[in-house]
Design a protein around this nucleic acid. Structure first.
Lengths: 366, 366
DNA sequence: TTGAAAGCGCTAACAT
DNA sequence: ATGTTAGCGCTTTCAA
C-alpha cells in the first residue's frame, strides 16, 4: 500500500508515455498489441489502480450516482461503540427475549429495498452508488458533499429542504423519489397510491354491500396517508355512498396506534370493513379484534397498505398493497441516467404500478 | 445546472483570489470577516458546490469509504424494467397472495443492517459511503472502480477473490468483515460464533440432562456453519459427553432443508433437543414438528442461529443467537478510520459479542 | 501508433 | 490577511 502507483510509474516501467497508458485503459484497440501487453504487464506488476479523483477531474464526470435518504435512526444518540479498545469484551451476552422492535423498523426496510434496486440498476448502467442518510445536521453538509462527488442525485421526497435541493440541482441532475410531485421541475419517480387504494376499496365494497365502513388513517401531515385516504374516499363516493358514513379513526402508522384505534371501534361498534392506511396499524387492529373475539374475515374485513413481511404472517394473513420498492430504486437510476445524456429534455414523471395482494383478511367466506 | 461554478467564478465575483475562496471553505478563521462574507455571498449567488474530484486529487484523499458485498441477487437476470417508455402502464396489479419469498432473503437483510451501521459510523467520522455489490463480473471491475475512488475499503468475507483483494490492498487499507480471519494481514471485524454457540449449547444441556441431542448442520463448506458446529461440539465434550452420541443431520441453511432434516428425525426417533446452525432451518423443523404433533418445548427443545425477525414470530418463539449486524458495520468503519491515520499499526482483529436470545423454544417448562 | 502538452478544479506551500 | 503558483493523476487534443 506504500504509495499508490500512478500512470507515470506504469509508463516508466513499460517504457511508453503516459498517454499510451491511458489509451490502453480506455480504448485498448487504439494501441498496438505488443505495446498493450507491455503496459498491461506493468499495470499488474505495480498493482496499478487508476485514481477516481484524477479521472473524474479530467473527464468531468465521476461515474457515481448518489442516493440520499431521510434518516429514521436517531443517529445522534446511538451508543458510541468502541471496538478498538474492547479487546477483552465477553464474546456474547444473554438476553431473555428481545423487546419487539417491530414498529418504526419498516420505513427502513423500505429504504433498504430501494437501495438494492438502485444499486442493481446503477451497476447495469455502469455507475457506482454513493449513499447518504439525512440527519438533522444544520448545514446539510452530507448531501452537499455528495453533490460534489456524483454525476446525479436521487433523493427521497422531503429528505432535503427545498432550498438546498434547488441549489444542488444547479450543479447536477436531481430525481425525487416517491413523494407526490409538487410544482417543481425535477424528475420524479412515484407510485399511484390513490388509484391502488381506490381499487382495493372497490374490492372491499363489493363484498360488504352497504355494511358500515371504517378507515384507519395515518397522521394528518403525511402526504402518503393523505393520498391513501383520497383513493379510499373516491372509491366510496363512486360507489354511490357518502364518506360521511365512514367512521374515521386516526393513528400514526405505528402498531400501537392501530391497537388503540381498534379498541375505539370495538367500543363504539364494530364496522363491516376496516381499511387501514398502512400495515402496521392494520396488524395492531387485528391483534385487538382477535383478543375481543371478533373474527376476521367472518365478522369484519381488514386491509393494510405497504406489503411488509409481517402482513403475510399474521392471522389471518393481511390483504395489502405492496410498494414496488426495488423498482423504485431501479427506476430512479434509469431516469437519472437518461437525464445525464439529455440534459435539456422535459422533466420526467414516472409512475410505478403497485401490487394489490389479496389475502384472507379481506375475503369474506362464501 | 448549466455549467457548474468553480473556485474561479467565485473568486472573480467576490474580487479575491482562488486561494481565498479555498480558505473560506476550509479554514474560515484564517480570513478576515468582511472578505469571508463577500466570498460566501458569491458562493450562494452562484450555487457553488466544490468538486469532489478536484478536492480528492489535491488533498490526496477522497473522504469516501467503500463497502463491498457479495451479491445474492441474480442480478444478471433481473427483468429489464423500463419505466421511461411505460407511461401508460396500469397503476396497479392484483395478486392473490404472493408466494412467500422467505428463504434466501435473509442474507440480504443481514447486509442491509451492516450497511446501515456502516453509514451511521461513516457519517459520525465525517466520511461518506460508497456501496458496491459483487456480481460475477469477469474482471471485478466494480470493486476496482470503487478502490480507485475511496480512501478505504470494507469487504464482506469472500466477496472478493484473494488475488484481487491483495492488489487493491496495495493501494488502500482493506478491512474484512465477518469471515474467520485467515492468515492474511488485513484488519478484520468478526464475531465469536463458536463461543456463543457453546454457551447456548450449555444452556440446552443444562435442561436436557442426558437426553438425546441432535445437531442440524449447515453445508459442509460454510465457515460459519463449521464454527457453529465446533462451538456446539466443544460444549458437548466439556459436559463430559461424546459428540458421537449426537445425531447430526445436514441441511443447506434453507427452510426447506430444515424441514427435510426434521422429517428424518421424526422418522428415526425424536431427540430431546435440536440445535440448528441457523434460524431458517430451525423454523423449517418447527413446522414439521408441529405437523407431527411433537410439542416444542415440552417434548423437544429447539434453537436457531442468526436472530432473524421470523424467529421471534414463530410458534413457539425461537431461541437464537443474534448477529450484531449494525455494530459489525460500525466497527468496520471504526477500524478503517483508525487505519487511515496510522497506516503502520499492526493488523486489528475486532471480535464483536453475539446476543443469545432465550425464548420459549428452548425453555423446558418446569 | 505514439508522444508532448494543456488543462480539469482544487489545496497548500511560499511570498508578499 | 491575501495572492501566486506548483502540483495532484488523469484524459485528450494536436503533432509527429
Amino acid at each position: 500500500m506504500s504509495k499508490a502507483a500512478t500512470v507515470y510509474d506504469v509508463a516508466d516501467r513499460a517504457g511508453v508515455s503516459i498517454a499510451t497508458v491511458s489509451r490502453v485503459l480506455r480504448s485498448p484497440d487504439a494501441v498496438r498489441p505488443v505495446t498493450r501487453e507491455r503496459v498491461l504487464d506493468a499495470v499488474s506488476a505495480l498493482g496499478y489502480v487508476p485514481s477516481g479523483s484524477a479521472r473524474g477531474l479530467a473527464e468531468r464526470r465521476t461515474g457515481v450516482l448518489g442516493l440520499y435518504f431521510p434518516g429514521f435512526d436517531a443517529a445522534e444518540d446511538a451508543p458510541p461503540l468502541d471496538v478498538l479498545s474492547a479487546a477483552d469484551a465477553p464474546p456474547f451476552a444473554i438476553v431473555r427475549d428481545a423487546a419487539d422492535a417491530d414498529d418504526g423498523h419498516t420505513s427502513m426496510l423500505f429504504l433498504d429495498e430501494v437501495l438494492r434496486g438502485a444499486e442493481l440498476e446503477a451497476w447495469k448502467q455502469g455507475f457506482v452508488l454513493m449513499v447518504g442518510v439525512g440527519r438533522d445536521d444544520p448545514d446539510r453538509s452530507t448531501v452537499r458533499d455528495m453533490a460534489g462527488r456524483v454525476d446525479g442525485l436521487m433523493v427521497l421526497a422531503s429528505s432535503v429542504p427545498d432550498d438546498v435541493l434547488a441549489r444542488l440541482a444547479r450543479r447536477i441532475p436531481v430525481v425525487v423519489l416517491s413523494g407526490p410531485p409538487r410544482g417543481d421541475h425535477y424528475d420524479h419517480v412515484t407510485v399511484s397510491n390513490a388509484e391502488a387504494m381506490a381499487e382495493l376499496t372497490r374490492h372491499v365494497l363489493a363484498q360488504v354491500g352497504d355494511g358500515r365502513l371504517a378507515f384507519l388513517a395515518g397522521p394528518e401531515d403525511s402526504p402518503d396517508g393523505l393520498q391513501r385516504w383520497e383513493g379510499f374516499a373516491a372509491a366510496v363516493t363512486d360507489a354511490g355512498r357518502s364518506v360521511d358514513e365512514v367512521t374515521v379513526v386516526r393513528g400514526d402508522f405505528t402498531r400501537g396506534s392501530g391497537r388503540r384505534a381498534a379498541e375505539e371501534l370495538v367500543a363504539s361498534g364494530v364496522p363491516t370493513a376496516l381499511v387501514a392506511a398502512n400495515d402496521q396499524m392494520a396488524l395492531g387492529a387485528l391483534d385487538v379484534f382477535r383478543g375481543a373475539g371478533i373474527r376476521v374475515p367472518e365478522d369484519l374485513l381488514v386491509t393494510g397498505f405497504d406489503g411488509i413481511d409481517a402482513a403475510a404472517l399474521s392471522h389471518p394473513p393481511l390483504t395489502t398493497i405492496r410498494q414496488p420498492m426495488i423498482d423504485l430504486g431501479r427506476a430512479a437510476v434509469q431516469v437519472l441516467a437518461r437525464r445525464l445524456e439529455s440534459v435539456e429534455a422535459d422533466p420526467v414523471l414516472a409512475r410505478l404500478p403497485l401490487q394489490i395482494i389479496l389475502r384472507e383478511s379481506s375475503q369474506r367466506p362464501s
